[in-house]
Structures are given as C-alpha cells and as structure tokens.
Design a protein around this nucleic acid. Sequence first.
DNA 1: CTGAAAGCGCTTACAG
DNA 2: CTGAAAGCGCTTACAG
Lengths: 333, 333
Amino acid sequence: MVTIKDVAQDAGVAVGTVSKVINGQYVSEKNRMKVEESVRKLGYQMNFYARGLKTRNTYTVAAIVPEILNPFFAIWVYHIEQELYKNGYKMLLCNTQGTVEKEEHYFRMAAQNKVDGIICVTYRDAEPYVSEEIPLVSLDRHFEKRVSCISSDNYLGGELAARKMISTGSKSLLYLRSGSAVSGETLKRGSGFADCCKANGIPCETVDLGDDFQIFENGSSSIDDALCNFLISCRRTGRMRYDGIYTSTDSLAWVLLTQMRKLGIQVPEEAQIIGHDGLRMMNRGGYMVSSIAQPVEEMARKSVEMILKKIRGEETEILTILPVKFVDGGTTR
Amino acid sequence: MVTIKDVAQDAGVAVGTVSKVINGQYVSEKNRMKVEESVRKLGYQMNFYARGLKTRNTYTVAAIVPEILNPFFAIWVYHIEQELYKNGYKMLLCNTQGTVEKEEHYFRMAAQNKVDGIICVTYRDAEPYVSEEIPLVSLDRHFEKRVSCISSDNYLGGELAARKMISTGSKSLLYLRSGSAVSGETLKRGSGFADCCKANGIPCETVDLGDDFQIFENGSSSIDDALCNFLISCRRTGRMRYDGIYTSTDSLAWVLLTQMRKLGIQVPEEAQIIGHDGLRMMNRGGYMVSSIAQPVEEMARKSVEMILKKIRGEETEILTILPVKFVDGGTTR
DNA sequence: CTGAAAGCGCTTACAG
DNA sequence: CTGAAAGCGCTTACAG
C-alpha cells in the first residue's frame, strides 16, 4: 500500500507538504505539481482511518430506520444514500426493528466519533441518549434538545384527506392509526383531519390500533385480525358505519384495503380510503391507494444538507416542513 | 474520550495488558478483573479506527445492490444487515443504480481496506476490478476468479414453473425476461423452464425485454409500453397467444399483471402468470403473484457466513445453491 | 512556504 | 505473564 510517505519521498518533499496538497491547502505551485504527479504515478489513495484517527472525521453517516422492509423507509434510505454519496459520504444502515438496543448502539458509535452524524427515524423515546454534541437529524420527530427535524405538512395532509372525502360525499369519517404514540409530527395528521371534519360538521371518530412493528415481521400479524374484527363490527347494522377512512400510513391503508376486499366491502363505492405517504408499488406506476404524498426525495435532500451543516458546526433550523399533496390511487371517488 | 491509556492507568497495568483483555487474549485472572472493572467504570469503548490503522480491520462490510427500491433487494439487504450486526459488523449500503462508477468506487474502498469485505449483487461485468485478495461474496453471479457465489436453484425454479402451468392446463407457454444478460445463475431460470416444456411437448417461446434498470426510476418506463404493445400483438388473433407466462422476476410479473388487467385479460383464466422471487407486499400477507420463492433469509445468512470466513482467511465454497419452492399468489389456477 | 516532529489510539513483537 | 516501545498513516502546531 502506498502511503503519504512514499509520495513525499517520490516528490522530494516533506509529508506535511503532501498532506497540504491533498487537503487543498496552500503550497507553492512547483511543489503542488510535483506532489500531484507523484500521487498519480504511484496511485496513492488516502487512508481514511489514519486521517480519522487524527481529525475524528469518518465521512460516514448512520441512517437509522425502524424497518427497511417498509417501502416508505426504503425509499427514504435510498434517497439519503444517493445524497450522501454525492457529497462524498458513505451511509451505514441500521434497522432497529423497533428495539432500543440497536438504536443505542449506533448512538454510542456516534458519540465516539465512529460516525460523523446520524439521520434517524425513531418512534420511541430516544431522548436519554441523544446529546447536543452529536450531529443528528430526525425525521418527523421532535426532541427537546436542539435536534433538527425534517417533516412534511402533516396537519395539512389530514385536512386534505378530510376535504377530499367530504367533497366526494362521505358523511361519516374515521381516522385509523397505528404505531407509536411518540411519533411527534405525525400526530398532526389526525388533528388536521379531525379539525377539518369539525369545521364541516361531519362526524369523525378515531381508532388507534397500537404499535405496528409486528406488521412487518413474519407475514400474519394481530393487526390483520384486529382490523378484520373491527370491520365486521362496523357492518353489524348492515352497512358500513364509516364511508370514508383516513389512515396514518399507506401501509395501514393497504392492510385495510386487503381486509375490506376480503369482506366484500366495495372500495371506493361503499367506503373511500385515503392513506398517507404516497407509496407506489416498486416506486413506479400508480399509487397503491389514494394518499397524501410526502416529497420523500426533497426531504432526504434536506436531511443530508442539514446533517452536513451540523457536521461542519454550522447553525441549522430546528424544524423544516415540506409540502404534501393528495394523489389518487383509486380508493377515492 | 476515554482511551486504552486511561483504562491502563486506572487499572494500574500497561496498555498492552488492556489491549489483551479487550481482544480476549490470555492475561492473569487478577489483571483481567482489574481491567474489566476499569473498563466498566470509565465506560471505555474501543476506537475502531485506531485499531483499524494497525490491523487493517474495519468491521464493516459493504453491501452493493443495483437498487434498494426493488423489494427483493430490500429484503436481501435487510437480512444481510441483521446477520452482520449479530456478528459485530456494520453494513455500508451502496446503490449502484446500474452504473459502473459507484460500484468501482466501493471495490476500490475494499482494495484499500476501507471495508473488510463486499457482498454484492452485480449484473454488469465487474470482472476487471475484482481481485482475489478482496473478500467478496456475490449473489447469483459467477466470476472467473475465486469469488463465492450464493444462489438458489434457478434451474429447478424454471422447471417448477413450467410443471405447474402444464399441470393446470396451459398449452402455450412464454418465458418473459428482462435485465442484464450477464446475470449468471439467473439465466438458468429460462433453461429449466424451456427444458421442462420440451420434455412435455409443450411449445415455449422466450421474449427478452432488455435491461430493466429504468423500471424503478421515475414511474413510467418504456417497459410498460413495450409490454403493452407486446400483449396487444399477442391478442391480435382474438385470444391470447400464450396461456401461461413465466417471468424472470416478480417485479416483471407485477408489471405484466398490471398491463394485462388494464387490457382486460383475465388472470389466471385466460393466462396464468408465475414470477420468480416470492415477494410479498411489505413482506407480509399473501404473495404478490404466484411465484418461485427464494429462501432470501437463508441466502443472506449464508452470504454473511461466507464473507466472515473469507475475512478470516478461511477457505470457502465457490458456489452454494439453496432450494426454491412454488408459492401461490392467485395468478395460477 | 516548508520541514521535522509530536501525537491520534491502538497492536504487537521484544525483553525481562 | 507483563511492561516499555515502536509503529500503523495521517495532521498540525512549531520553527526556520
């Protein structure tokens, strides 16, 4: 392996001079040329770990998500990686599976400068091990400390969903949610929805299915059954009690749609469904369900921009909210 | 930051002794206890970059996939990460998007010991920059050099697909493929299918749609149109020319199914579809299409087992083939 | 502007 | 078994 020392010797300069050339600091034109020539000739490439030992910079950012199998997070991670790569950074991927253990592990790594920063999606209470010193950007989740949060306009999303269903004739609405209650920003989806219903004099209820990590575990989950039983109880009077359902995520909307079809409930005739996220199968073609789409790519770009600023020690906004829009996926009228 | 030096001082031993304890080498019981106590007390954690500088070990493996948005690769990466984590390794994720540039970049990193090994899925000709010295495990793709390849029984998969369609009455079969022609192992899917058809005296054609990277790009792609036109031409005589179609991947099967539904072709009545991979929406519930399922988790486990062996310098098998099975996703009779 | 030297936090022969 | 010391490949004050 060729080191800075070999280059220095070949170019007839000191190692410090080589280092300066590599890092773009000022050296005389003559020496710069000599060094660059030697670098090329010897095929020198920096050893990042040696540099990291001195500078405490690893050019690596950890992306922590609950679950890469969830298409929303997959797309999110995809864009994060692309953006980081453009900026010369690598991405360490971590699936927490909703457990604290792995999350803590990565936060510790960051604290020890094993990674330069963290971009995370955490739906649990990570407050205890988040420190002000670690560059950290969070998706959808506020912290008490000065952690930047990237989110989309969840309140407006809920409103858009309600407006759409009301304008297409729904008279009895439901907000169906699942997932952790510490979801921060995403809780506003329900508020926007409920507020809009109230403003329009349309009855609206909320049902919470609880934590949904098991959804992505091994095939069947209790949520399917819970949902099925719930739907049956909704039809006890002969017809669906709700003719418009807004779900907290597209994943949930998809499970709902599957169960409704199984029970023979016509969508969107008997009941409309609007999800949230704007997922498309394989990220192409039409939307899986009618939905409130988040600008994932833009959110990822912003997240990376933020984390790089933080790594450089610059000031950053605490909260960035990007716009959402309604998209038709065939489950609305 | 607490270093090995602080621990040594606290425990009243030399740094070398601390190093030995940390690395599980033999030291006297008394000293071991003292060191372990100090480590706990001071909350010492190893600096991997300092160690890496000496040992050239980073405890990081790069996972290179063409496209994380493709659910098959997402699940693959998911299991790879889980397995690596269990073994104390981190995973660097790289999306190549089918371009050589990023792939080369990561291979160079490996060559310089920036990562300990690489687990890759490459559908292009990576031969030039693959070297024997880099621990490398490949999915589905043979190399001339001694690179371990993990695959599933693709030939049998093709056979199973043909057998299923023939046994349920299909009389005119088609193998529809897309993707790179250097896909190595996966080419056998077509052979197994064709051979089985021939053995049963059933006519079978093959249509190649070419590279499919653009499928996952931004929504619509030329493959949709190509497929649509193709299907229209297949029905020119009034009825479908093929009553059974086996596709090289589930992704392709899904696009096919979507187009067939759009054209009003009844599946599975008018034509059956069998894909390959065994994908389930969000990795749960039923299969997206009837398919030849690969044991992804097992394949990932095996890949990680292999790469760790290679990193330790042990000998490994060149080719590992895991079993496949037919799964019903409603697109077969 | 440039060179020589110290030091980042480890591991590893080498004596003792 | 243990300690002292060299060295991994860099960066960075510090002299000159």
